[in-house]
Design a protein around this nucleic acid. Structure first.
Length: 273
DNA sequence: TATGAGCGA
């Protein structure tokens, strides 16, 4: 066995790092020349004891006085950045849902948009009906106090309002009807949810979004992780707007190799209530 | 290994 020869004349990379890391010793100034620009980098220790790089002025400012030149430089305050978790980056747009406040006093949970038995924020139609509702209120003059013309008897095919726009059943007659859902199928938001298991620990919501978006528009992604450590628990829930899309996602992604693991995708059982 | 969360008309 021939022995491996070490070149002892040069310090190893680790030793170099050690040397440069010594407190109190600073790298000597470095000069690099690129084209007609010469950059001089020198090092110092600032008041916080941090080791810093200082750049000499260069280019057109090479001979400026020390300190910032107000003609070319603006000194601003420090900018601090706050990072927040992007849990809601899907439905990022808030909407104000104000105009239908004449429905107070109901005891059961009733969606203010479609009158279904879920919270407004969980309404599967909030993106489409919310703005329409607002528009409708303006047409009826609710904000100006003008008497509403919608009280007139209407012909029996009222799928379209006078303006030619579609008005869902729950909003006709000035939106006073209640108790009718447009589909007998309630909880439309929960039956298009799938569960994905066998995810690798470093899978993120955005990865899931990219993976499942080809199958249809996604309404919600929940990646289960430990509340304290943030450690992924290896499974996730994806909600589609349409159940068919969810079904195609199951067929398409189940058994899919992802990050050296085989994904398993199936229908999610609804959680509590 | 594995079925989320929880402000509230």
């Amino acid at each position: 066995m021939p022995s491996i020869e070490f070149d002892d004349s040069k310090p190893s990379w680790a030793d170099q790092v050690e040397e440069e890391g010594d407190e109190g010793s600073l790298p000597s100034p470095k000069e690099t020349v690129k084209g007609n620009i010469k950059t001089v980098t020198e090092y110092k220790i600032d008041e916080d004891g941090q080791k810093c790089k200082n750049w000499k002025k260069f280019g057109n400012s090479e001979y400026d006085q020390p300190g910032p030149n107000v003609a070319t430089t603006t000194v601003s305050d420090d900018v601090f950045m706050t990072f927040i978790s992007s849990k809601e980056d899907l439905n990022a747009q808030d909407q104000d849902e104000d105009p239908m406040n004449k429905l107070k006093g109901q005891k059961i949970v009733s969606c203010r948009i479609c009158k279904g038995d879920h919270w407004t924020t969980r309404c599967p139609y909030k993106d489409t009906l919310g703005p329409m509702q607002k528009e409708l209120a303006e047409q009826l003059g609710l904000s100006t106090g003008e008497k509403e013309k919608a009280a007139e008897p209407e012909p029996a095919q009222p799928v379209q309002s006078k303006t030619g726009k579609y008005v869902p059943p729950s909003l006709r007659d000035g939106g006073t009807r209640r108790g009718e859902s447009m589909q007998p199928n309630r909880r439309a938001d929960d039956n298009a949810t799938i569960r994905v298991t066998n995810l690798s620990e470093d899978t993120r919501e955005t990865d899931l979004q990219e993976l499942f978006r080809p199958f249809g528009s996604i309404s919600r992604i929940y990646l289960a992780k430990d509340k304290n450590t943030g450690q992924s628990k290896g499974f996730a829930f994806i909600s589609f707007h349409r159940r068919e899309d969810a079904a195609r996602a199951i067929a398409g992604v189940s058994g899919f190799g992802y990050d050296h693991l085989i994904l398993n995708v199936e229908w999610a059982k609804p959680s509590n209530n």
